[in-house]
């Protein structure tokens, strides 16, 4: 087990540096003019220019710039944005919102996704199963921003639920945004759980469990479920990371003042440093979630653990 974890951690460290390097490169080196990439088209005063060059070490070779940037990121010194505000502060005040939103969405995806998937999987071919299949396909096909925008519109027009989260501190205001954020993951989870349950119901060990005289509820609820959940949990773990990344759309639509909202604002005002910092942070969250999932996978599936 320890060796498995060490191997995965090493792979993640490699992917971490590779990924952040790629993000950084895409931001600065890929566009010809790094200053324009940072501050957009607007005219800059000579002093701002100089400050940007100093802040991002633009007079140094690319890899040195990257090294400085990584150092800042790893020591949580996130620097200042183009209007001189500490990005660290920005992130610190926005983070809790996104975390709450993503966790709420995640709970929803886990509970509803597994429950619906297991029910559909055990009743394959039935009315419930077919309805679930069609509905999930529809949800998968409608881009999240469309679902969100239409819900926000309808909600506001008929005054069904709050569609503007700014200034509303209650968790209740986050429910609809969380449903929207989780909708795609939910549909995918349902389908994955369904397939996994159906496959496992056909497995030989189910026949053994029946031959032991176990009751049906225990065969499905313990033997089949424990096996079926392995791919589902793996998927879900990765999803928690991408839910935070996906929050940009939901937070924009419902005005949730989280990380995604800040990212959206930074894009609109062409604030390069904030964009690249927030994206890097989200990528890190995503990678760490992947690592946790890999370890969890090892715990759940003994065949992996001892390889």
């Amino acid at each position: 087990m320890a060796r498995y974890i060490v191997r995965r951690v090493l792979q993640m460290v490699l992917a971490f540096f590779g990924t952040t390097l790629l993000v950084y490169w895409l931001m600065f080196a890929a566009s010809g003019d790094p200053i324009a990439a940072l501050a957009g088209e607007r005219p800059l005063s000579e002093s701002t220019r100089a400050a940007l060059i100093q802040e991002f070490h633009l007079d140094q070779p690319f890899l040195v710039q990257y090294a400085y940037y990584m150092k800042g990121l790893l020591t949580l010194d996130l620097g200042v944005n183009t209007s001189g505000r500490e990005i660290g502060e920005l992130v610190a005040s926005a983070w809790p919102w996104t975390l709450r939103l993503a966790l709420l969405a995640f709970v929803f995806v886990v509970v509803a996704g597994i429950a619906l998937g297991v029910i559909a999987g055990t009743r394959r071919g039935g009315a419930f199963d077919n309805t679930t299949l069609v509905l999930t396909l529809v949800v998968i096909s409608i881009p999240v921003f469309v679902i969100g925008q239409v819900l926000a519109l309808v909600g506001a027009r008929y005054d069904l639920f709050p569609t503007n989260v700014v200034g509303d501190d209650s968790l209740a205001a986050l429910i609809v945004p969380a449903l929207v954020l989780g909708s795609l993951s939910l549909a995918t989870t349902v389908r994955l759980a369904r397939t996994s349950v159906t496959e496992n119901l056909r497995a030989d060990y189910v026949r053994t469990a029946r031959a032991k005289g176990l009751i049906h509820r225990r065969i499905v609820g313990v033997h089949v479920l424990r096996n079926s959940l392995i791919p589902v949990i793996t998927f879900l773990g990765v999803e928690l990371g991408s839910l935070m990344g996906g929050a940009i759309v939901t937070e924009k639509i419902f005005n949730v003042p989280g990380i995604g909202f800040q990212l959206y604002k930074a894009i609109s005002i062409e604030d390069g440093p904030t964009v690249v910092t927030i994206v890097s942070l989200l990528v890190i969250v995503y990678l760490v979630m992947n690592l946790i999932v890999d370890v969890l996978y090892g715990v759940l599936d003994p065949r992996i653990r001892y390889e």
Binding site: D204, Y205, G213, N227
Partner: peptide, 24 residues
């Protein structure tokens, strides 16, 4: 019937690798 199954009449299957549950 279930009280007989496994308790008074038990069964052994061909391929023990797939007949045993891999995760327990």
């Amino acid at each position: 019937r279930r009280q007989i199954r496994g308790k008074r009449i038990a069964m052994i299957f061909q391929d023990a690798l797939s007949a045993l549950n891999p995760v327990f």
